[in-house]
Amino acid sequence: MWRWLHPYAKPEATFALTQKLIPWFAVPGLVLVIVSLVWGLAFAPPDYQQGESYRIIFVHVPSAMWAMGFYVGMAIAGVIALVWQIRTAELAILAIAPVGAMLTFISLFTGAIWGQPMWGTWWVWDARLTAQLILLFLYLGVMALYVAFEDERAGAKAASILAIVGVINIPIIHYSVYWWNTLHQKSTVTRAITRLEAPSIAPEMLWPLLVSILAMLLVCAALVLMRLNNEILRREIHRPWALQHLGIHFATADNKKEKGDADAV
């Protein structure tokens, strides 16, 4: 069942795949970004309580959601790196962490900007906000641990373990608004999609929100792929296929011939 995955343990195969996939994520992603911007900023109706300020939701929710999603992805890469010792998975951690950290930062930043007019404060030390701040520190910890060792692979192992252990924070973030009293409102999208509770968002707002969530996923996936691509290239820079890809015509053949001639004497 997983046989098809095996060739991608080879960096060269993954490099070729990411190279091919980047435009397939980047182009639809950018198109959807424009669609969600126009839809969310100009066409979605204003909120009956929050007026136009609620439009921050179209960057706040997607970034917060994928900050958690990418963390889980990074932890899965960590499991693969630890169990099967696949280098490409280690590089994936290095590719995902900065994007995830940036998403977490965006969610905190836009949340603060949204909190100021609506709650009257930029920041409160309540469950949801604090748990999300811990997520940022986990990402930064993974990045720091990765480069903290002389041997890069030892760092990758330590970072994998931290990434896996940190997954505990993800359900805490998600359920924080249910488990504790918090200023933060409850999950809008989960309620709208699962219908376990009455949805709290009108379809005219939900649809552009879903588009912005998809746009954020595609754009950030493209960023992760670009970074993974770079990391593989960095690790494999001496291989002929890498040089060939960069368009460097290393005259290896000539040299070999010349060297061979010289050695033959």
Binding site: L41, E52, R55, I56, F109, I113
Partner: peptide, 10 residues
């Protein structure tokens, strides 16, 4: 100022 700064920051 709130809406545009959060979009610009993102």
């Amino acid at each position: 100022i709130y809406v545009w700064s959060s979009f610009a920051g993102t």
